[in-house]
């Protein structure tokens, strides 16, 4: 069922929202580039999540605050910046919600599912890998990006770690509740896994020599290496596929298919690639990749 449609007349709400592109919004936009144009003339079927959010003129999005290139809190604006944040803004814009009406809530790996389940956030865009275990409790739109698990080691790779099999007997750090941590537990039990709540602590431990490797999605590691090119390096051989999806409440199929529409549209009209270039692309130094194929399950 197609639910996005443009109304012929200007909704009163739309007018109000259009008037709202205030200073604060521009300020946030300043630091992370431009924001997606807000659709002011949208209308949704009554009773849908889209209609509810549109009516409220506000949305709460869970994202990471500590992931360079994807979601990193800017101390000046106290707003997160990155690719995930831009994707969130794209979705909000199509709901007729201005960027400054988005409430950003920090979701770390360990609380994303409960946050979606209990309605604390409307959607989660937080380097959130789609997998079957998670699908039992939440639903995913997307993917909007495909990452892969990789390994970060100290500069010069003193332990000669070339892949996950070399982690046997080594101490490797990851984050509790993340798929890479679970993957190590399940498939590489000989590696000694240490878990923190955030990757920055893993990076500190690698720097101090407390752990010999840090493992998670390559794009996250790239962000960490970018800050300390003299201390860290990436092994550079991704050994899993981590499709990033937008998490939402289980069973809300209309909302899921709406977000999928938004994503597909942004793949086609270049908004997606533009968001990439402005954020994560700056860190990886690569052109926007081919967008993944949205999976409408």
């Amino acid at each position: 069922m197609r639910i996005t449609r443009y109304a012929a007349t200007l909704a009163v709400l739309g007018l109000a929202l259009a008037g709202c592109s205030s200073e604060a919004g521009n300020q946030a936009a300043e630091s992370s580039g431009s924001t997606a144009a807000v659709d002011t003339e949208v209308q949704f079927d009554a009773g849908t999540t889209m209609a509810r959010l549109n009516e409220a003129g506000a949305i709460t999005i869970g994202t990471k605050f500590d992931q360079p290139g994807f979601g990193l809190l800017n101390p000046r604006t106290q707003e997160p910046e990155g690719f995930d944040v831009e994707i969130g803004k794209l979705v909000a814009a199509k709901l007729g919600i201005d960027a400054d009406k988005i409430t950003w809530t920090e979701t770390v790996s360990a609380n994303r599912e409960p946050f979606i389940q209990n309605g604390q956030v409307d959607i989660v865009v937080a380097t959130y890998t789609i997998n079957d275990t998670r699908k039992q409790v939440v639903d995913f739109a997307g993917p909007y990006y495909e990452a892969g698990q990789d390994i970060m080691v100290a500069k010069g790779n003193p332990e000669n770690i070339a892949g996950p099999d070399d982690l046997a007997g080594k101490t490797v750090c990851s984050v509790e509740g993340s798929t890479p941590a679970q993957n190590i537990r399940d498939n590489y039990p000989q590696a000694q896994l240490t878990t923190y709540d955030v990757y920055s602590k893993c990076a500190d431990d690698l720097r101090n020599g407390n752990v010999q490797a840090v493992t998670t999605d390559n794009v996250i590691l790239t962000g960490l290496v970018a800050g300390s090119p003299d201390a860290f390096e990436l092994v550079g051989k991704p050994f899993t596929k981590e499709p990033y999806g937008i998490g939402l409440k289980k069973g809300d199929d209309q909302f899921r298919s709406f977000i999928n529409d938004v994503l597909e549209e942004s793949f086609q009209d270049g908004a997606w690639a533009e968001a990439w270039d402005r954020t994560a692309g700056k860190i990886t130094g690569t052109e926007a990749p081919e967008p993944p194929k949205v999976n409408r399950y």
């Binding site: 605050f65 500590d66 920090e106 770390v108 709540d197 920055s200 300390s228």
Partner: peptide
Amino acid sequence: FIVGYFELLRQARSLVEFFNFQFGD
């Protein structure tokens, strides 16, 4: 820090993460 409330320590960590990205540690 554990619930993501920006008290002093969490804010300090956030600043660390922000600057880490440009300047390392």
